[in-house]
Structures are given as C-alpha cells and as structure tokens.
Design a protein around this nucleic acid. Structure first.
Length: 428
RNA sequence: GGAGAGGUGGCCGAGCGGCUGAAGGCACUCGCCUGCUAAGCGAGUGAGCUGGGAGACCGGCUCCGAGGGUUCGAAUCCCUCCCUCUCCGCCA
C-alpha cells in the first residue's frame, strides 16, 4: 500500500512512477475520496469533542442534583449533536472504505534503479555464472528423464490429484528432500537466517498484508469457504509473523528462512509448461525473508540475492541474474532480481528464484514497524524476500544439466551427504 | 464437536453506565536517606494517530480481544466473531 500522504503531496510523481509499470492508474478518484474523508473527519471530530464535554457536564449536574429543567436543556443539545455525528459517520465510513479499497488495489512504485520496460523481454541481465554443459548427445527434458529413471510419475499424480501435480518416487523423493535440507542448512548455518516452520494455510488478513489479497484471489486455493487460503509462498506466513508489531530497531535486519510447500491455482497459465514439474499446483520452496531498516534495504536485497545464488553455485548449476523491468515487476515489489537456471532441453534460462525488495509497501499494509531508537517514533520497516530456491525446479535443473549419455544423472557433491552418499541416479 | 471460565496499561490485578486513561501492587526513572548494597521516604512513568509552534511545549481524536448496537454519555448493558484456559468426546 502506498502512503496516502505521499500520493496527496506528490500525485504527479507517483503517477509517473506507476506509469512505468504500463497500464495507467488514475489517482483522481482516490484524491477526491481522500479529500472527502478528511473533511468529514474534521466535522465529526469537532462535534464529538463538543458532545463529550457536554456529556461530562450532564454527569456533573446530575451529581450536584441540579434541577431537571437545566439537565433537559443539555440533553436536548447533545441529542442534536449525536444525530449530526451519526449522520456524518455513515459517509465517513464510506469514504474511508473507498480510500482503503482504492489504495489496496494500487501496486507499488518501482524503485529508481528498476529498469524501464514493459515485458520480460526488456529485463536486464546483470551477471551470469557457471559453464553451460556441452553434451555429446541430445540432452533429454527432465520429464522424460524422470520417467525413465522411475523417480517422477506424472501419470499417477494426475490420477490421484489431477493435471499439474507431481508424484516423486524413490531417489526422486530423496533428492527433493535432500535439496530442502541442504538449502535450509546453508542459509541457517552460513548465511545467518533463523529457520521457521509456519502454517501452510493462512487467513485473509495475512494474505492482505503481503498483497495477494484482495486483487489476486483467483490465484489462490481457498479452504473452508474462504476462511483460510493455502499459501502460494512462505513469504506470506513469514512476513506476517510480525504483522501489527513494533520491532526493536537494534534487532534489524531480521533474517528468516522456511521450507514450505506452495500452492498456486495457475489460473491463466493454460498451455504453458504443461509437461513435467516446472509449473505445478503444489511445489516445495525454501524461502528467505528479511525485515530491514529503510536505509539499508537495497544493500540487503543484494546480499539476499547472493544468498540465493550461493545455492546454485554449490550445486554447480549455471545461471543468470536479471533485474526485472518495471513492467514485469510483481504487484508489491519495488525492485526484483530473478535468478534463472540453465535448462539444456529448452536451451533457455528459466526462473528458479525471485528476490524482491518491497520497500514499505507490505509493511504499511501489515503494520510492521520498528523503533529507530529509544523514545523515537515507530517507522515502517522494509520487507524483502527471495526464493532460496524453488526446490522442484532445482530438481529439473539437476536432472537436465547433470544427465549423462547412459541415461543416468550425477548427484552434485554438495548433495551427496544428504543422499546417503549416492553419486548418481541410474535407470532401473 | 459438547459444557464451563476468561480476555483491562511492560507484568499482576480492581473496576455501581457519567467524578476512570483507568484503583492497588510489581517493575522502571529521578530525588532524599544510609559507609556500599538492601530496606525506607518523596515524586514521576501507557500507546497510536493528528493539528499548531523554531523549540522546551500546547491542543484534538482513538485505544480496556475485534466488530456492530443501545444511550446525551459504554471498560461497564446487548449482539456477532476471534483467541486463551479447564473438563468431556474424538484424534496424528
């Protein structure tokens, strides 16, 4: 959520910043509702203050045993005030709802360092790492390898759940589990993140805090008639840990990591990535979340991105980092780096992590603040998060990059301790 | 799921519909006293939003789990919801 005061005082600049995302936003209705709201607040508050004084006087008069007639006069005046307040409170609530509703629907303004551009075509490659494998044979796609190795069974997954669900078997299940543990260990022991294991369903308030609601309900799985939602990412529970809290400035930055499954309806993605496990309704992810002081949050984004990159480096997977252009940015993000891993079967880099700085956008929605110093006024923190990494897509990358001509797949050294020393997965 | 109890300031804990932003205690701060510490004595100490002032400051509004309602006036009465605890049932 943007600061209404900022929109009020620099509407032009905000509109310009939002226009960089594409699709213009008309701020005029919002400003009008805000002006109406502020006027009504004044009208209501002056009458409330007045009526409270008079009510106190009524109490005093009664205590002193003043004559009924005197009290009656006060009562009548106050009744009129109460009616006037009531009449305005309705429109005030309406104006407040209108302002809130419009604010919740406006995306974050891109940071100045976010490059211009409308689509992913215009994202800017920042750096690449690793050697793309050179095969002396035609590399297979992960779904074909997974089926041949007997570690992925998409057919039966469809039988028990439906299209876009994965079923891992044997060494495949072990590989997925090993990756989760490897990633969590790396981030908690070497990068200083605190591990959490949060609920996989959250309430409406949590989803609103991080920005999934109210605008993107169709992307979520609803549970118990909308009382709960399955999380699309651990960002939601992790960021909401501190909803409506004032954090101690001396504790910042807070660095949290969590493994969770993620559930996405993938509405509107029909026909894309239909094979294999690249795009499924349920996948595993290790997520990193930071709560930072505003003045350090962009430095924290750089180190967060490096922390995610470290996973790919330890595994020896070639990747690219690109800065998303303004038009490709997520709703709540001010700046995002995507990590894209090389997939030989597609001869393309594909997203495996997305690291974002949300500035105070989520903090304002979720009321997450910090006290800069003793006695100082609370300010909104900056929230950040990044995948570290998407586990299913890491499996895809391992299968495709480390496949050999005989159909086997080598297990990266870093992972072997997590897989009982297994050095390769071989066809049955 | 059934029955009951309860949610008040940093903590504990009172609170007849007006004199309660909230008794009392603890904790904390400052001062006095004491060789030091403890004890004792005295004074002070909630949060958020917002307006004015250069500033030490001065005002307004909100907050007793949340949201509605009754009333001139609600921590106090009514309704709905959430959460916690106890017992029973069920259960990984």
């Amino acid at each position: 959520m943007l600061d209404i005061r900022r929109i009020r005082s620099e509407a032009e600049a905000v509109a310009r910043a939002l226009a960089r995302r594409g699709g213009g936003v008309d701020l005029a209705p919002l400003l009008a509702a805000d002006a109406r709201r502020r006027g009504l607040i004044q009208e209501v508050e002056s009458r409330v203050a007045d009526s409270r004084k008079r009510s106190k006087q009524i109490g005093e008069l009664k205590r002193k045993g003043a004559p009924e007639s005197e009290i009656e006069a006060f009562l009548a005046g106050n009744q009129r005030l109460a009616e006037e307040v009531k009449a305005r409170e309705g429109s005030l609530a309406e104006a407040e709802r209108a302002v809130e509703e419009m604010l919740l629907g406006i995306p974050n303004t891109p940071h100045e360092s976010t490059p211009d551009g409308r689509t992913s075509e215009e994202n800017v490659a920042v750096r690449t790492w690793g050697e793309r494998p050179a095969f002396g044979f035609a590399p297979k796609a992960h779904d074909e390898l997974g089926a041949a190795l007997g570690i992925l069974d998409m057919k039966r997954a469809a039988k028990i759940a439906g299209a876009r669900f994965a079923l891992y078997r044997g060494a495949g299940a072990l590989l997925e589990r090993a990756l989760i543990n490897f990633m969590l260990d790396l981030h908690t022991t070497e990068h200083g993140y605190t591990e959490w294991l949060p609920p996989f369903m959250v309430n409406r308030a949590a989803m609103t805090g991080t920005g999934q609601l109210p605008k993107f309900e169709q992307d979520l799985f609803r549970v118990d008639d909308g009382r709960y939602f399955l999380i699309p990412t651990a960002e939601v529970p992790l960021t909401n840990i501190h909803r409506e809290e004032v954090l101690d400035g001396a504790e910042l930055p807070l660095k949290y990591a969590a493994y969770t499954p993620c559930f996405r309806s993938e509405a509107g993605s029909y026909g894309q990535d239909t094979r294999g496990i690249i795009r499924v309704h349920q996948f595993n992810k290790v997520e990193l979340v930071k709560f930072a002081r505003p003045e350090t949050s962009y430095a924290e984004l750089e180190s967060l991105t490096r922390d995610a990159e470290a996973v790919l480096q330890r595994l020896g997977l070639p990747y690219r980092v690109s800065a998303l252009c303004a038009g490709d940015l997520g709703f709540a993000s001010a700046k995002t780096y995507d990590l894209e891993v090389w997939l030989p079967s597609q001869e393309a880099y594909r997203e495996i992590s997305s690291c974002s700085n949300f500035g105070d956008f989520q903090a304002r929605r979720a009321q997450i603040r910090f006290r800069p110093g003793p006695g100082a006024k609370p300010e909104f923190v900056h929230t950040l998060n990044g995948s570290g990494l998407a586990v299913g897509r890491t499996v895809v990358a391992i299968l495709e990059n480390f496949q050999r001509e005989d159909g086997s797949v080598a297990i990266p050294g870093a992972l072997r301790p997590y897989m009982r020393g297994l050095e390769a997965i071989r066809p049955r």
